[in-house]
Design a protein around this nucleic acid. Structure first.
Lengths: 153, 153
DNA sequence: AAATCAGTTGCAAATGGTTTGCAATTAAAA
DNA sequence: TTTTAATTGCAAACCATTTGCAACTGATTT
């Protein structure tokens, strides 16, 4: 149950073939909309909302609902990770094979710009919290908020 | 800008008079619904959703919308703190005078039971993150999830 | 290559949390 | 008690997300 917080986003872009392979293995169809969505995720280093993905898509490529369904499915297969920046809109990021995608962000509260963070909540402290309360399988959700250099001016 | 993560929930219950005083000072009216809402918050150690507050209220005491508006106002005055457990429903907890209410929770993913946590994200690491990215006014949102003792059985 | 079938899609409509418009009401100041 | 700004209830609007369903399409089989 090791946390691997560091450097996910430094990994090299995943091949589209590897992604479609993962789908095929789960007997999921590689459709136009799905390929397009994966392409967009592949080229984006930051978590995207479904609307943002929709906006990137060539108009008419697919319905917004299809994106919602695709993200649900990709999340279930562990191919994307859902993030919650507290604004009531889910964001998704592609996850590498064998990775759990666990990491955190620093979000500018003025411009909503996002920086990925390598730091993670210290494992020993988390273990202490789990033990003290006799909880098992403890993880955390953690995001940082502040004002980015540009927005400070 | 000191974080005071520990022991908020061990503080003794706030007097209703102190709460209404804070409202009066801001030229807010002490109405039946508001007094009732504050009473409920005062007696609850854990974050409550608006619906939960509504359910605790004697039927017909006030409209759900009134609770939404009251919570918005109380949050603006810094009298309650909003928490986000990632289930798309806001939760609120009363905050002591002079306190910023910053603290975290350990939430059971099976029964949604909540435990308040004294631990906080280490200040030096947060400062390092802020400095490394030249962000100012950095805070964090942090919640832990796991399976509570009862639900492990 | 055509048939087959489970998995997919689009569209419309439903959900669920939260917000807003507005006229009627009321707490607190004068 | 009068006056006035703040507050409330109700209905409707909003927004992100989900769901029902009939039409459709990849991928596999024949």
């Amino acid at each position: 149950m090791k946390k691997t917080c560091a450097h996910h986003h430094h990994e090299k872009k995943q091949e589209l073939a590897s992604l479609t392979g993962r789908l095929r293995r789960e007997s999921r169809k590689i459709t136009g909309p799905r390929a397009a969505i994966l392409e967009i995720l592949r080229h984006h280093p930051h978590p995207l909302t479904n609307k943002e993905i929709f906006a990137e898509l060539p108009k008419g490529e697919c319905d917004l609902v299809t994106i919602y369904r695709a993200m649900q499915m990709l999340e279930k297969l562990g191919m994307v990770k859902r993030f919650d920046f507290g604004d009531g809109t889910a964001r998704f990021e592609l996850v590498g094979e064998g990775d759990d995608g666990h990491h955190h962000h620093l979000i500018c509260t003025r411009c909503t710009g996002v920086v990925e963070i390598d730091e993670c909540f210290p494992e020993e402290i988390e273990r202490r919290i789990a033990r003290a309360n006799r909880f098992t399988g403890v993880t955390h959700r953690l995001e940082f908020f502040g004002v980015c250099p540009d927005c400070q001016k």
